[in-house]
């Protein structure tokens, strides 16, 4: 290949220097937080006064992420099995099918999505009651 100087091709990339004058695209994270969009599929919440313990959520979840368990919490009187769902976040893929099939719409996905823990057992997540 013959060598020839590509002048515009050499000079035009220098336009990138203009970016030094611009505001950065990133945010200063712990000080400024990014707003999560409404309807983001984050952690589960389960409104216990509504949950009827029907286990539809367990049936539809193909990742076997949901256990129906007994706790000492206050349930809905109509909760026919006296069980509520607990989710294994090691298996869940946040597909939100369980919330789609929940008859009283008690199970929902929340905007919150940050979870930090040092114990693997904390992956077994009890949905917040709200």
């Amino acid at each position: 290949m013959k060598w020839s100087i590509d002048i515009s091709g050499t000079l035009s990339p220098l336009g990138i220097l203009a970016a030094m004058m611009q505001k950065p695209n990133t945010i200063a994270y712990p000080a400024v937080k990014k707003e999560t969009a409404v309807g983001y599929r984050g952690f589960h919440t389960n409104l216990l006064v509504d949950c009827i313990g029907c286990a539809n959520c367990q049936d539809v979840c193909m990742n076997d992420a949901i256990d129906m368990i007994k706790t000492d919490k206050e349930y809905n009187v109509k909760n026919s099995s006296q069980c509520i769902p607990r989710i294994d976040y090691g298996r869940c893929c946040w597909c939100s099918l369980c919330t789609d099939v929940c008859p009283p719409d008690s199970l929902k996905l929340d905007e919150e999505y940050l979870g930090v823990t040092q114990y693997a057992s904390d992956f077994l997540y009890m949905p917040k009651d709200k």
Partner: peptide, 15 residues
């Protein structure tokens, strides 16, 4: 357009 300048027309990418 900026990508054109800094990448597509960049002499080092072309070569």
């Amino acid at each position: 357009k900026e990508y054109d300048n800094i990448f597509i027309n960049n002499a080092s990418f072309k070569s």
